[in-house]
């Protein structure tokens, strides 16, 4: 476990900025008694409160499996990939959101893209290829993805057209249980 280097920090922030934009500031700059930090452990980036960090230092490296919130992992080539475990933080600070109808929840949770027919609501002025967080109509975060069309363009789309490209969903907790941690 170690702090991120500058390059790694940049890679992480670039990915996060795609979903929460300027709200990353709220992840870094927090209240004095609620400090959080980013740590790298076995190629995975964790976001954890400081007291937890102090506790975790007493765990030997091979024994430490996970701590805090896993934001994602670095590939061998140095690229950062956001994981579904980061969904809670993304949902909290998301800039652009997409709500899917109850009929569309299951298809999305099986790893499919969000279709126009399943689109319940979408944030105004969402541009194309923007990272969005997908919610159910009851405001439960289901996953995240990238928009295929801008908000205006979706109006003209036929019902089978893809609105949001799937990137991660909470169904992965079941589907990728073995490889997730």
């Amino acid at each position: 476990m170690r702090p991120l280097t500058e390059d790694e920090t940049k890679a992480v922030f670039e990915k996060l900025a795609n979903y929460i934009g300027k709200n990353i500031v709220h992840l870094i700059d927090r209240d004095e008694d609620d400090q959080y930090c980013f740590r790298l452990h076995k190629d995975r980036v964790y976001y954890l409160p400081l007291p937890m960090l102090h506790l975790a230092t007493s765990v030997a490296r091979p024994n430490l499996i996970s701590l805090g919130t896993c934001m994602g992992k670095f590939s061998k080539s140095g690229k950062f990939k956001l994981g579904v475990t980061a969904l809670d933080w993304l949902a909290k600070y998301a800039k652009y959101k997409v709500w899917v109808k109850p009929t569309g929840e299951l298809p999305f949770l099986y790893g499919n893209h969000v279709l126009k027919a399943h689109l319940g609501r979408i944030t105004e002025d969402t541009p194309e290829h923007q990272g969005v967080v997908v919610f159910s109509m009851a405001d439960v975060p289901l996953g995240f993805g990238a928009t295929a069309r801008s908000t205006i363009q979706t109006r003209d789309l036929d019902p089978a057209g893809i609105v949001v490209f799937h990137q991660a969903d909470v169904g992965e907790y079941l589907r990728d249980e073995e490889t997730m941690f």
Binding site: E6, T9, K10, A17, I24, I28, C37
Partner: peptide
């Protein structure tokens, strides 16, 4: 650490 992270963020902006 926070300051350096903010610095990275500003440059990202």
């Amino acid at each position: 650490e926070k300051a350096s992270a903010m610095d990275v963020l500003n440059r990202l902006g």
